[in-house]
């Protein structure tokens, strides 16, 4: 009987490990620093995680499809700079769709290289990280980009506004998570993403157009990046060329923390959201406990590596195994 309970618990942990970790985490931090569970603090964390979160939603599609996207940070800088520049030249109503169009072009290009030409996604997106950075600098001429008259535009609603008392970045993040979550779990396209990432050859043998599905995952990712760029630009009304630098790794960290398999075929939007929140609360909790912000870099990655290890350990039923 005790054995059965133990087995049941083990299976629960293996399946819901990330959720359990999240709850344990919140309790520990709440006990250590009472301010942690303050509603304003929590709202603040979610709000500042929104940009990272929106990007992580798109990368979830790419990763489940069996590929990587390391270009999202650099692409987010591009979107931010482009929309700020066009804002003063075309007005916000035209600037926003133009920026989305251009960002989607970048996503389509990556999708073409990885999906149709079947190039290694690590190499392609690493290369694009650098190439897009160059593109951004060329666009801006290396200067910071600012909206000239910050009070005369409605452009701030995406980053600074509120909907029914909830900060708009949170609303956008939640809505996008809902829509993409439904697409991934409930539509034929979502099913194909899992199939292509789970076993690309078998997907091909089942008549799934593998190249097109991979292409589409990069479009989803680019759309999310454009949305993140919009929130970023709208919040600060001005930006450096490097605003998204390094975010690609944090995004990937959140997706992995959420439990998406780097080999493809596994993961969910919901779990990625949890991964994003854990990452946000870890960093917030460490600050509240008085650690310098740069300690985050170390602690964050130690926790991620631990998470990956425990995930694998849960799957094979022991912490260490001589066979993979």
């Amino acid at each position: 009987m005790a054995e059965l309970t133990k087995q049941g618990l083990g299976r629960f942990f293996a399946r819901q490990g990330i959720l359990v970790a999240f709850v344990v985490f919140m309790i520990v931090f709440a006990l250590a620093t009472p301010r942690f569970i303050d509603i304003d603090n929590i709202a603040g964390v979610v709000r500042s995680s929104a940009i990272l979160g929106v990007m992580a939603l798109g990368v979830t599609f790419v990763v489940i499809g069996g590929n990587l996207d390391l270009s999202v940070g650099s692409m987010m800088s591009f979107s931010t700079i482009v929309v700020l520049d066009l804002h003063d030249k075309l007005g916000p109503a035209l600037a926003i769709p133009a920026m989305f169009g251009l960002t989607l072009c970048l996503g389509a290009f990556i999708g073409f290289l990885v999906g149709y030409l079947k190039l290694n996604s690590l190499i392609v997106t690493l290369g694009m990280l650098s190439a897009i950075h160059g593109l951004t600098l060329t666009w801006s001429g290396g200067k910071n980009m600012d909206i000239a008259d910050k009070d005369a535009t409605w452009f701030g609603v995406f980053g600074q506004g509120y909907v029914a008392g909830v900060p708009s970045p949170i609303v956008i993040f939640a809505l996008l998570a809902l829509v993409l979550g439904v697409i991934l779990s409930r539509t034929p396209f979502g099913r194909k993403v899992y199939a292509v990432g789970g076993n690309g050859t078998a997907a091909t043998f089942s008549g799934i157009p593998r190249a097109r599905v991979v292409f589409m995952t990069y479009l989803v990712s680019a759309f999310c990046v454009a949305t993140a760029g919009l929130i970023q630009a709208s919040r600060s009304m001005g930006s450096q060329n490097t605003v998204g630098q390094g975010l690609e790794l944090e995004v990937l960290a959140a997706v992995i923390l959420g439990g998406a398999s780097l080999l493809g075929g596994a993961g969910t939007v919901f779990k990625t959201v949890i991964g994003v929140l854990i990452l946000g609360f870890i960093q917030n909790g460490l600050l509240l406990m008085g650690l310098a912000f740069y300690a985050q870099y170390v602690v964050t990655w130690v926790i991620i590596i631990l998470a990956v290890w425990l995930d694998i350990a849960a799957k094979r039923g022991r912490l260490w195994s001589p066979i993979a």
Binding site: P188, R191, K192, Y194, A195, N199, A202, I208, G265
Partner: peptide, 21 residues
């Protein structure tokens, strides 16, 4: 295993994959 099935997917989803559309 290599060409016929997606091992990490459930039985039903594997079976209906070619006609999921």
């Amino acid at each position: 295993k290599g060409q016929g099935l997606i091992l990490g997917m459930n039985c039903r989803d594997n079976m209906t994959l070619p006609q999921v559309d």
